[in-house]
Design a protein around this nucleic acid. Sequence first.
DNA 1: ATGAAAGCGCTAACAG
DNA 2: CTGTTAGCGCTTTCAT
Lengths: 340, 340
Amino acid sequence: MLFKKRGKVSIKDVAREAGVSHATVSRALRGSPLISPPTTARVKAMANKMGYSVNAVARSLVTGKTHTIGVVVTSIADPFVGGVTAGIEAFANERGYSTILATCHADPETEKRMVASLRERGVDGILVASSRVGTEYCSMAAEMRVPIVLLNNQRPGGYPDSVTIDNVGSAQRAVEHLLELGHRRIAYIGHSLGYASECDRRQGYELALTSAGVALQPAYILQADSTPESGATAAATLAALTPRPTAIFCYNDITALGVLAYSREQDLRVPQDWSVIGFDDLFLSQHLYPPLTTIRQPMDEMGREAAKLLLGLIAGEEIAADVRMPGELIVRQSTGAVGH
Amino acid sequence: MLFKKRGKVSIKDVAREAGVSHATVSRALRGSPLISPPTTARVKAMANKMGYSVNAVARSLVTGKTHTIGVVVTSIADPFVGGVTAGIEAFANERGYSTILATCHADPETEKRMVASLRERGVDGILVASSRVGTEYCSMAAEMRVPIVLLNNQRPGGYPDSVTIDNVGSAQRAVEHLLELGHRRIAYIGHSLGYASECDRRQGYELALTSAGVALQPAYILQADSTPESGATAAATLAALTPRPTAIFCYNDITALGVLAYSREQDLRVPQDWSVIGFDDLFLSQHLYPPLTTIRQPMDEMGREAAKLLLGLIAGEEIAADVRMPGELIVRQSTGAVGH
DNA sequence: ATGAAAGCGCTAACAG
DNA sequence: CTGTTAGCGCTTTCAT
């Protein structure tokens, strides 16, 4: 009886029952000061009684805003992505925004398709993490008339609105930690797909070494692909070298995980035979054996920061912020003084 | 010039430029057989040239469908949740559905608020993982006129449309594995907030023991709260017992992680001094020391299955499926024969 | 303080 | 085959 055929109760149904116009209902429900308190109360009571709830789709059509942001990530099953997304969602939710999730599996074409699809869905803004498209968004954002912010953009060239971990500085700090422990033969295991983050971390590595007057050894610079297996393979290569490096800086924790696994398998003690340091500080890293020294990326904060930037852009702020987040060195037991 | 003030190009703009009615444009763009091939081609070309893209909001208002599903989870930073969500999103995306993410931090009130909010946003269906509300949705789904499916419902009482891991059977299998290794003094570390899954796993534990003619020992049944710390505390309690249990079945991998940490700290060898088995098979579990024997929950598949069920319901299928997924015993090095 | 009317961009009868 | 006409449910001038 209270329900029409189409299902949900509309503003008009409430208006009829309350004996007012549907415009009045619309105003009353949103607490407009134009409506008298008694009317407002009566309308609200009736709406409540009838189980009314707004149709956000209809509202969006007239206001032109959906209060929704799109988030495109490589894979939500990735622990780093999950942490960042949690921060994004939390901040957005606090501000009354919903989050539409889209995954692109690190494929640039899919990434662009997802962005286009989100735009069709009318999102007020788009956030893309670990973009493989990057700079192209400068024109796309304007053309689509939708603000876009990048989080850990992986394409060189830069983008005005983005938040990124300080890869160079953090990597440098990691290697300095090794230098402080007396290490001089320090290897680096990177990532073969020239991500911007990988170039930057290698640059930080080289910077730290050359600043300390340590010559770069090409044989000490290897590539893996962010799997434990590839990390183990690279470790094997390094283990066969003479002289063997006494410390290894890895592109990320997953790579370091492989080095640790190889070391245990070959009875190479960590950190006595060589020190190992990672990057990310995944939850698992503190539970490895030995617990991994690493650079912590503040995932939640980075997500919040990116969401904040995006909502600012949506609100019309003109700020073109290139936020750089600091990484934090977390010293655990996988690094130690040289020659122990 | 090609753009109107409001920003985006509309169907009417294309119609004007192409010299047809906007209805024709609408049909042509969707490939309606009613429109002649030449007209269709011309319209498509013009739309393309003008950078047109549909306004899904407007479309939804008339069709009454948004091709969007809502997913409410406890926390997207949780690795299990991330795995399941990946499966949901993948399946939904393949079928042309977008996913709106909402988190509720395991709070029943927030969970209900999120469901209500998703409904306002016009989602075609809702999927809630690890629900703390459960059975109440029977009436809510009807009242809201939106299909709801539950994944790993944590409230006893059941719900018609849900997919759940076979907790009883899987736990039973885990304990049987221990029994087969010769263990008789087998402890269980559960979870203090009576989740349905925890009750079921304990039930499986008890079933396995009594079926094997092993009497239940109340002192061997403890509660933790799914943190490594609480797992370690429970392990300490068990270690102080005489006789000490020779094996521990943990509610989940995180709890087992704590047991492993405590064991290493106290020089209790795993599995020689006691065997440890978990539940979930998180990514990290294979990298622990020793690698953890556990029950694998097929996260991706569970997500896909739940999404499939939901999309079926949305399509109007009448099936009320209570899908039960099998867990898989993964034997690694944290379990071994008794007395070694 | 309230109502009447217009319109957001689209789909879907109904005509022709 | 194509155009005309109504809305979908809401917000928002503009009157009163």
